[in-house]
């Protein structure tokens, strides 16, 4: 996932999340305040049960799920960023890599080895 893609996804998800909550609230509105006012007036149709149940279900299944999924998506994003940091670092050539072998010393040691091991065969 390129970084620009990540950014876009982030924006989209956040947008969706904030909308989901407001939608949730909206769906749950029961026109309670208006009930008090116009108990007598019935110029507006009472909500049909179908509408109620649909909006109720929508609220639960769609919006809530969107909320949860949005959060999960963002969590997945943080994890992918974490992975990128930990797994794809370039080892620092200058600093981390070992210093060169001390060639002098090593050839000295090797000569010593030859003497010790081989000459003793005599």
């Amino acid at each position: 996932m390129s970084n620009r893609g990540l950014l876009e996804q982030l924006e989209r998800t956040t947008e969706t999340l904030s909308h989901s909550l407001s939608n949730l609230i909206k769906y749950s509105s029961v026109a309670k305040e208006r009930d008090d006012e116009d108990s007598g007036e019935q110029h507006e149709l009472p909500e049909s049960t179908a509408k109620n149940s649909t909006s109720g279900l929508m609220m639960v299944n769609a919006q809530t799920a969107q909320l949860i999924k949005g959060i999960q998506d963002l969590l997945v994003m943080t994890r992918s960023i974490r992975e990128k940091w930990l797994l794809t670092q370039i080892p620092d050539e200058g600093v981390d890599s070992q210093s060169e072998l001390d060639y002098e010393k090593c050839s000295q040691l090797l000569k010593q080895w030859t003497q010790e091991v081989v000459s003793s065969e005599e």
Partner: peptide
């Protein structure tokens, strides 16, 4: 964080 990622791709990250 994403911006950090962006900045470091060439240097710290492959």
């Amino acid at each position: 964080e994403i911006r950090h990622l962006d900045e470091n791709v060439g240097t710290r990250l492959l």
